[in-house]
Structure formats: C-alpha cells, structure tokens
Design a protein around this nucleic acid. Structure first.
Lengths: 189, 189
DNA sequence: GTCTATAGGAAGATAGAC
DNA sequence: GTCTATCTTCCTATAGAC
C-alpha cells in the first residue's frame, strides 16, 4: 500500500474514533511509521487531508448504492439489504461510527472544504433512500404511511444516530435492532 | 447570573457548536468576559467542566421526562409531545444539536468522567422512551409492530441523528419531518 | 520521498499578587 | 474572585538537507 493510502486510512480511523479536532499529525505519523513532516508531501494542510478522507468515503459508499440501479424491475428488499450491509458491518464493530456522523458533531467549526463534502454526503444518501422508498412503495414492495421524504429522513437519521449511540451502549446488537425495526416498519401498513 | 453559570452556559453552547476538542478556555474567557485563569477558580480542569456541562444538561432533560409520570391514567400522545418539545425547539435552531449527540462523535477520545455521563444520558432516554412505548401500546394508544425496545432504539437514534444532520441540510423542517413521521408510525399498525 | 530542525503560536494548567 | 505572568507541552506548518 502506498504511503498516501496509509495516511488516508489512518486518518479515517482516527476521525471515526476521536473526531477531526481530536487527533493530530503526530498521531498519524506514529501509526503509519513516518515523521509528521512527511505528511505534508502528500497533503498541504490538515483540512485538505480531512477533505480527502471524506471524498474517498463518499465515493466508497456511493459505489454501493450506484450498483443498485433503481429503475427497471428490481427486488427492493434486496436493494435495501445491500445498501445497509456496510452500515451493519460498522454497527458490529464496537468502536466504529459513520465518518460523516462523527464530523456532523463538529460541523460548525470545520473548514469549509470539509463542510461541503459532509453536506453532500448526507444529501446524496437522503435522496437515494427517498428514491428507493418511492419506487418500492409504488411497486407494492414497501408499505408505510406518510411521505417518502419524511420516511427517508427518519430512516437515515436513525442509521446515523444508532452508529453514534451504539458505541456508548456496549450492546453489539444496537444497530441490528434499529435496522431490523426499520425493515419491520416498511413491511406493514 | 453567576460567573460559574455563565461559564457552564458558554461551554455548553461551544460544545454543541464545535465539540469538546473544538474549543479552548480562551474561547470561553472571551465570550464570558473574563480571563482564562479565572475559569480554574470554578473548575479544576477542562474535563471537570465538560462533565459539569453534561450533568446539568442531563438533569434539565430529566426534569421534563420526570414530570411525565407513566403510571396511572395518562395521555400517552401528550406525554410524547411534551417529551419531544425541547427536541423540536433545538431542531428549529439551525445551529443547535443535542449536546450528547455531538459528544458521541468524540466519545472514544473523551475523558472517562465525561464518557460515563454521556452513556448514562443515552441509557436513561432509551429506557424512558421504551417505557412509554410499553404502556402506550398496552393501553392501545400506540400501534406498531416489533419490540418496544427496538422501536425505542429506532426513535431515539432518529432524534439524535436528525439533530446532527439538520445542521448541514439548511432545512428548518428537517427535525419536524422526522418527529412527524415517528408519530405517524406509532398511529398505524 | 523522507528526514531533521525549527518557527510561531495556542493549548491546558499553575503560582502568586491584588 | 479575578488578575498577570509564566510553564510546559503540543499543535500546524515550513525550510532545507539527504
């Protein structure tokens, strides 16, 4: 693995653990096995590194939902399952949260270039879930009261919230419970 | 208002804005109109101040749910409305999030004395919502599929998540939408 | 590409005057 | 109670050798 990748990997883990203001270049250097100054060869400033981490995270998550083409005849339940599979995986790791959920807490104080990426991440996912709900409801796969947009906001908020709260609960099934309940609520009028 | 109260008020606002690692004693001093050193007369360390802020927040929130005695004959919908009223209020302020939701992002790196209070806050609220769902469902006020515990986890996760995401969305009705959808899901089988 | 060295400032915290 | 002054450590970032 390239040094640049190692730096981004390590930074992503550090942000998920401690937030953007909770780690320093010294933490990265120690874990990667390089010196602080070497990081500046790849990233001109902490904010640029922070942005790069979010951009890569966004792309990785988008790759999953992009595979799930919502037009045509698809299994909406399977699409939902595949969409939430990385979330379930994060949920089962006791210390991992969603990168953007963590950064949402520090949002107001973050550099603008990071804010933009975070807002775009949330917007993208809210829209994707809403679109899935629209086609799934129209096809009769999902049944729920209320508007798809409000339901999407509820579902995605619950995902983000559960990934934060689960770290404090010590219950490995916390996120599973929330995702299971979401599915239950999509299956009954 | 006493100086101690002004310090705690200011710190609470700073944490909600930037997280625990995103502000310094210099920020507090500037806003309160005192010098950094004066803060140490009231709080021996940043961690102690951080803990004091959470303790007060916890008590303030508990005062609301404590009023809503769940035993006996009560209006469960009214109890829910009163419980979420401070959340709605935070939701309508574009920059305010839940104190503990913000701190959940930095959880792993926080001092132990703060971690304990945050975990207790979440536990307390999850239990309260679950208790409300249990009695409300038994009385026929609420209808929903699944276990009250899973439903409480979904609801409270959604509340915390929505208060973080709404700051990035620019939509003043984001939290309203989520709370409205929750109520809709409690009213239909 | 990675290093040593260091600038320049801000952090949390303490001592002691008033 | 609040201040000035200061300590020590850490921070982000840069310059320049190898």
């Amino acid at each position: 693995m390239s040094t640049a990748d190692a730096i981004v990997d390590t930074t992503e883990a550090l942000i998920q653990d401690r937030g953007y203001f909770g780690f320093s270049f010294a933490d990265i250097a120690e874990r990667v096995g390089i010196k602080k100054a070497s990081i500046y060869y790849y990233f001109p400033a902490k904010a640029a590194l922070g942005r790069a981490v979010i951009v890569r995270y966004r792309e990785r998550m988008r790759a999953i939902s992009d595979q799930l083409e919502l037009s045509g005849s698809i299994d909406h339940w399977q699409a939902l399952d595949r969409y939430v599979s990385p979330i379930l995986e994060m949920g089962r790791n006791p210390s991992t949260a969603c990168l953007c959920g963590v950064l949402g807490g520090e949002y107001t104080a973050l550099p603008d270039e990071m804010k933009q990426e975070i807002a775009a991440f949330f917007q993208e996912h809210l829209t994707w879930v809403e679109d899935l709900l629209v086609v799934g409801k129209a096809a009769g796969s999902f049944q729920f009261n209320g508007e798809p947009r409000a339901m999407a906001r509820l579902i995605f908020s619950a995902i983000e919230g559960s990934l934060l709260i689960k770290r404090t609960s010590g219950d490995i099934e916390f996120v599973d419970d929330v995702l299971g309940q979401i599915k239950l609520l999509l299956g009954a009028v």
